[in-house]
């Protein structure tokens, strides 16, 4: 009797120990995760002089928003360029997203529902794209863009962003379509709908969360893209944020507070987008990988 009791207590203590080590682990991990972002923000509040001190000021002696004002002041050089980069990024990301989704929706649906000859091969080819680094495509695409006269245009970016945006969109959307029972379309077709109507009236409304999620993915992917933009764009007025801020702040000695303010501003749209639509985002990612 007593033995059983003490054994139970030990077990409970064991479980408690696990829980506590889990909490401590999470706490450390949280520190590791947010520390750089906090430091980014703190640095962005410093003057150039305050940043160049050792040991650093853990909190700026005279916090200033000067770095942010500089970025959004359209009358200054820095502000004018930054605002231009920002719009370029928004424009390129939005257009990429729309194109990717419009083209991916029918393709994903077909891959989910139809069994046409060559389907597996084609789907394999689509998925395989996710495996290849941009570099494999860089040289030939650079040549192609040169030939098409697209170097230094946003067209070159949008077209190349589809190389990763489209396969990802197809894969994500297919995951969503896979989870919509085929019986719904079958019922619709029996109820008098054509295949297209069944898709448009029944499946499309149900896949809205998937389309939202896919759009966020495409958008964030395009927003964060660096290597193509870095290679294809040399003109200042065409640059997107990731390449823009670099050329901009590293010309002579690095202006760290300015750079931190710019990266902070650059991160805001995607982080906000992510936090607001987190639910869709997480679901989309795991839908395809975790079959229920």
């Amino acid at each position: 009797m007593t033995m059983e009791l003490s054994a139970g207590a030990a077990k409970r203590r064991g479980a408690g120990g696990w829980r506590w080590s889990g909490r401590i682990f999470l706490l450390l991990l949280l520190g590791f995760t947010v520390m750089p972002m906090i430091w980014m923000f703190i640095t962005s509040l410093k003057t150039g002089f305050a940043a160049m001190q050792y040991p650093p000021q853990w909190w700026p002696a005279e916090p200033t928003l000067e770095n942010y004002w500089r970025l959004i002041d359209p009358s200054g050089n820095v502000g004018r360029d930054f605002i231009q980069y920002f719009w370029n990024s928004i424009w390129v990301s939005t257009l990429t997203t729309i194109l990717a989704v419009v083209v991916a929706v029918p393709a994903a649906y077909a891959f989910s529902r139809f069994r046409f000859p060559g389907r597996n091969f084609l789907f394999f080819a689509v998925l395989l794209r996710n495996m290849f680094p941009a570099v494999v495509f860089l040289v030939p695409l650079f040549i192609l863009m040169k030939a098409l006269g697209l170097v230094n245009t946003h067209g070159s970016l949008i077209l190349t962003y589809l190389t990763f945006g489209l396969p990802l969109a197809i894969w994500l959307l297919k995951g969503f379509y896979d989870n919509i029972p085929v019986q719904l379309e079958q019922a619709a077709r029996i109820d008098g709908a054509t295949r297209f109507q069944a898709f448009f009236l029944i499946v499309m409304p149900l896949s809205t969360p998937g389309i939202i999620a896919t759009s966020i993915y495409s958008f964030i992917g395009a927003w964060n893209e660096y290597i193509y933009a870095y290679t294809f764009l040399t003109r200042h007025d065409q640059m997107t944020l990731p390449v823009g801020i670099q050329r901009f702040f590293s010309e002579n000695a690095t202006d760290w507070p300015g750079l931190m303010a710019a990266t902070f501003m650059m991160s805001i749209p995607v982080v906000v987008l992510f936090l607001v639509l987190q639910r869709y985002f997480v679901r989309a990612l795991t839908e395809g990988a975790v079959k229920h």
Binding site: W223, Y226, I245, V270, F274, V282
Partner: peptide
């Protein structure tokens, strides 16, 4: 959500 942020911010940042 906080733990996921590094994954959404750009690698450039």
């Amino acid at each position: 959500a906080l733990l996921l942020i590094p994954w959404v911010v750009s690698a450039v940042a």
